[in-house]
Write a protein that binds this DNA or RNA. Sequence first.
RNA 1: GCGGGCGUAGCUCAGUGGUAGAGCGUCACGUUGCCAACGUGAAUGUCGUGAGUUCAAGUCUCAUCGCCCGCUCCA
Length: 490
Amino acid sequence: MAKLTKLDDIVSLCKRRGFIFQSSEIYGGLASCYDYGPLGVELKNNVKKAWWKNVVQMRDDVVGLDCSILMHPMVWKASGHADKFADLIAECKKCNTRTRVDHLKDKTNEHGEEHTEHVAIESVSGQNLINKICPACGIVGQFTEPMPFKLMFETKMGANIDDSMTIQLRPETAQGIFANFRNVLDSTRVKIPFGIAQIGKSFRNEVTTKAFIFRTREFEQAELEFFCEPGTDMDWYNHWKETRFKWYTDLGLKKENLRFREHDPDELAHYAKGCVDVEYKFPFGSGDWQELEGIANRTDYDLRQHQRGMRTLNKWYENDRDLSKIELASEAEDYNKGPLSYFDEQKKERYIPYVIEPSAGMDRSTLAFLVDAYDEEEVRGETRNLLRFHPALAPIKVGIFPLVKKDGMPEVARKIYDNLKKYFNCFYDEKSAVGRRYRRQDEAGTPFCVTVDGQTLEDNTVTVRDRDSMEQARITTDNVLNYLRGKLDM
RNA sequence: GCGGGCGUAGCUCAGUGGUAGAGCGUCACGUUGCCAACGUGAAUGUCGUGAGUUCAAGUCUCAUCGCCCGCUCCA
């Protein structure tokens, strides 16, 4: 079985085979950023394709979307990210514990206020914390100068420096879906229940990253916002829970390495009615169960928040476009009939739909598929290393070889290769012994290899060798494409 | 952010102040011809980066970047 027992082994495997490299490695690397190599990009693209096929293509009730990464600043005011994602943090000099300044309790007032107020960065210095207690060790007033933390990446939009606008890189793709809810309703004839799906990059300035690609600052999400009628939401929550779990196992992840983890009620965001993580057991370390995907019942929170956001727009202009100076407008009395509501033609009633959100990390699941596929086995006293990828995920589908590099075999093999590569990713190889070429493809996880041999020249047949069993079938050259299509389900 | 460990060829690693190394992998030629064969040969190094100490630094010191482990943080 797999001998990957440390994260280092996996990092090494990823680099050696061209799956994942450290970003900017020739310059000493850039923390928390990684690049996908030639095999890695194929694998990850296949993971994304498999998600899209399962969540969009094969369903009548989901449509796709691809939003811009840069969005109007008010999007993040309404979603709550602008406030929640900007904090002042002070560190206790005694125990090195870092705490949000607005969470610190006063020595004289140990009841502690609710920390909803926004703390202006200029107004707080270490001196102001002289009476504050460290929640970890109880020491009073031993804090460092507060450090401002911004969890969203900022950039400037507009080439004119004096007239440019601060914009955030999205910390999740979901808000782009909510912002387009009305557009999709008006342009596609969808009816509730229906979903909008999107795959794309998101950015978060995590306080700590670490652990290879499990928590990176730039990452790719596949998110579905599934809109349904209030009251039916828990049924859909359970539907997506099952559907999403099955997706992983159908693509070959071993069941014993997958589990659900339901969030405790006190762990839930205040608007969420339920949340479950799909976790994968990576074969290393102690904290080995890692989240691949979260499935949440977000209720009608997001659409209601954006209705409030739309009502706040003028205030934003009036306050020099400074988000920190404004409060989100209160909710309209008849918010149910607002611009982001839905009119049910049959029931003749208008409501804000509830949302079930399966949100999957594409980088994490790509790595899980890679790690799970890794295998070592003894063959005639030698170790055979291979990746047992599901055919849909394999970066290369077929290797094509001439048995030897003479007697016209390369020409015939090339011709087969030129034909097959129109249909799937193929790799042609005529270097060194054929056994070595088989093993090289095993390492890349290629499910099938086609070999042209002496018999091919006589009766127009080739051998097709199976990665997992190493068995060969003899097929007529004309039938190779159909044979492989059947085996690969493509 | 704190504590600990690490950084030498594509990978795994040796090299304890004095000429930059091995195995695997890669490439070429020969041989073999269906599962990592063999022989011969070759290429590949800012020793993470920058300073310092020294006649001399991969080796000692400092800083810095990056990675791993444990806390912490985050969700």
